[in-house]
Structures are given as C-alpha cells and as structure tokens.
Computed example of a mutant assay.
Amino acid sequence: MAGLNVSIAFFFLVVGACQVLRQLSKRLLSPGAYDCLARELAGSLQLCTSCLELRMLVEIGPWGGGFGPDVVLTLLFLLFTVHGTSFDGASANPTVSLQEFLLLESNLATTATKLLAQGVGMGTGWAVTKLYWSWELTHFHLIQNLIASECSSSIHTSLHHAAFVEGTCSFLFHLVLLKLCQSRPMYRVPALATTVTFLTYTAGPFTGAFFNPALAMVTTFHCSGNSFWDYVQVYWLGPLGGMLAALLLYQGNIPRLFQRNLLYSQKSKYKIPKARVAAHVEGDEPQRKKKGEKSNSKPRA
C-alpha cells in the first residue's frame, strides 16, 4: 500500500501545481489568452500526468501491489470528479473543442489555439511523468521503467471493432456532455465522472477506453503492435465519428455545416393553451357580430 500512497500524493501534487498555474495565468494573461491557451494547457497537463500514473497502476497494481480493479476504478472516479471541479471550463480533449467549433461556440483561430495548447500540455505531462518515474520512488515505478521500452499496444481486438468501441465511447460521452452542458456543476461533474468510469470499465479491456485523441497519442502511439495508421483509425477517427454522431442526434444538424434540421421538424417554442385560444375566440364573436350588424344596416331615408 506504500506505493499506492505515493501515487495518491502525486495526484494531489499535480492538481495543486496545475491550480497554481491557472491562478498565475489569470493574473498575467488576458481573459482570451487564458481561456484558449493557458487553461487548456493546464488541464491537459493535469489530465495526462494523472492518467499515465493511473494506467501504470492498472498494469502493475494487480500483481505488484495486490489490489484489484475496484481500487483503480474508485481512483478514476475521484480523479475525474476533481478534474471536472478544477478544470475551470477546459476540455483537455480535441473532440470537445471541435464540437464547440461545430456548434458555433468558438471560431477557427480559438479552436486551433486550443488544440495546440492541448498537444503541448499532453506532451509536457508525458515528460513530467517520465521524469517522476525515473526517480523510482516505489517498486511500481521501478517495474515501470524496466518494461517501458517494451510497451505493447492497447488494442486487444480487431481494428474495426476497436474503432467501433472508441467511437461508441465517444458517442456516449458527448451525448451526456451535450445533455448536461446547461446543468449545474454539482450535477454535471459527478455524472460525467460516472460516465467515464463506466466506459473505462466496459471498454478498457479492448482499447484502453481513451476516447481522447491527444491522450491516446502520448500514451499508446509509441508502443509496438500496431502501425501509426492503425492508431489514427482507432483513436482519432473513431472518437471524431462518435462525436459527430452524438452532435447530429442531439441537435438534428451540425450548425457549422448547415442550418436546416435533418432529423427533427421545426416547431414553435411558444404554444398557446387551447383554453386561452377558445376564450379569445368566444370574446371576439360579439365584436364580429356588431361589426356585421353595422355593415348590414341600411341607411334611413
């Protein structure tokens, strides 16, 4: 359990350091630069380092530490709850940023900046975690350093099935995200954390359940077992297709591409109650009669 305690302390340290980075960025940068650059960089750094350490526990913990998947899933839920609370609106996910672009919530320059910041944050998180592992503070990290050069692909099924699994995870995640986007954080954060935990538990044995192209790129693209194009199909095209399907199902269209609703008929948002319409019609009848009588009356001689 000593190794697990060190990992938990590492999680707290990473969250605290990224929180300090956010506060400093708010003071030094303009709101626009903070929103699309510093906030995404800090969120991606926090997500990448946490997920890499958690992935190490998933691979080594059961036989090196004697704890089961229930411990890892509990940590995963708690971590994503903390991430949702501390991210300050950052997505740290390229498909979420592209979804905002397609919904006309951000322009092309802002989206490109967010994608760049996410890539830099993920790369920095990978470098920081590798440095942390090199200190070999626990026997987990010692084992991780020994097997790091021989890591294998996270794809443990056929290529088409793997792309379908990642696409389905992305579809469900984005559908929940779209449904809860206007909800209060106290409801949205645990709901998203529960969704991520469930999807990881269900799809993890097949693909690792990343449904985040940037996170998958720094985590598994360098491992042997599949080509770069295989990874692109599974971890880039799969989540992107799932996001587009969720957006189309939820919105009925993709606002950036076309305005017409393809799935749902357009109806007026405001409906007049039938009782009120009937009362209005009955109230108008005497006036209509009076007007009719006045128009039909003949002039007196």
Rank of each mutant, 00 (worst) to 15 (best):
P273W: 11
S106D: 05
A216W: 11
Y187T: 10
R260S: 04
L244D: 02
N261C: 10
N253H: 14
L263Y: 08
A33I: 07
D88L: 09
F171T: 03
K267P: 00
K294N: 07
R276E: 11
K130C: 05
K267V: 15
T168M: 05
L146P: 00
L137R: 15
V176L: 14
Y264S: 07
R300C: 02
H156D: 02
K289F: 12
F101Y: 15
K130D: 01
L172T: 06
S154L: 05
C151E: 14
Q233D: 00
L244G: 02
G241S: 09
M56A: 08
S224E: 14
N261M: 06
R256P: 03
W229G: 00
T200Y: 06
A246S: 14
R184K: 15
E136A: 13
G167Y: 14
R188W: 07
V165G: 01
G16V: 13
I8E: 00
S153H: 04
Y34L: 13
L146W: 07
A214D: 03
W236S: 03
L137C: 08
M1Q: 02
S86A: 09
K298T: 12
G3H: 06
P239C: 01
G61M: 04
F173D: 00
T129F: 13
T220G: 02
Y34C: 12
C151H: 12
F221E: 08
D70V: 15
E285G: 00
D284L: 12
A90P: 05
M122W: 08
P286E: 05
D88H: 08
A17W: 08
Q23D: 04
A193Q: 06
H174K: 07
Y270E: 04
T111Q: 07
L159P: 03
N212H: 10
E40I: 10
L24E: 02
P213Q: 03
L76M: 11
P273L: 14
Q118Y: 07
N296C: 06
L177M: 10
G3E: 09
L78P: 01
V176R: 07
F11Y: 13
A163M: 12
G84P: 08
L79I: 15
L79Q: 12
L102C: 12
V96M: 06
L116E: 00
S134K: 11
L4T: 08
L116K: 03
A275C: 01
Q99E: 08
L175K: 10
K26L: 15
A109S: 11
L178D: 02
F173E: 00
V6I: 14
L192D: 01
Q144F: 14
H156Y: 09
Q144H: 13
Q118D: 04
T207N: 09
I254F: 08
F11P: 02
T111W: 11
I60S: 01
F140N: 02
L29A: 07
K289M: 09
F164Q: 02
K114N: 08
G167M: 11
L45F: 14
Y264V: 13
T219P: 03
I254D: 02
L29H: 06
T157H: 10
Q46F: 13
G119C: 12
C169M: 13
S134Y: 05
V218R: 05
L45G: 01
L115Q: 06
R184S: 14
F210A: 03
K130N: 01
Q23V: 15
A92H: 07
Q46W: 13
P190K: 12
L175E: 03
R188Q: 09
N212E: 04
S97P: 02
D284Q: 11
L175I: 09
K290L: 11
V128C: 13
E53I: 14
N5K: 09
D35S: 07
M186Q: 07
V6A: 05
S152A: 06
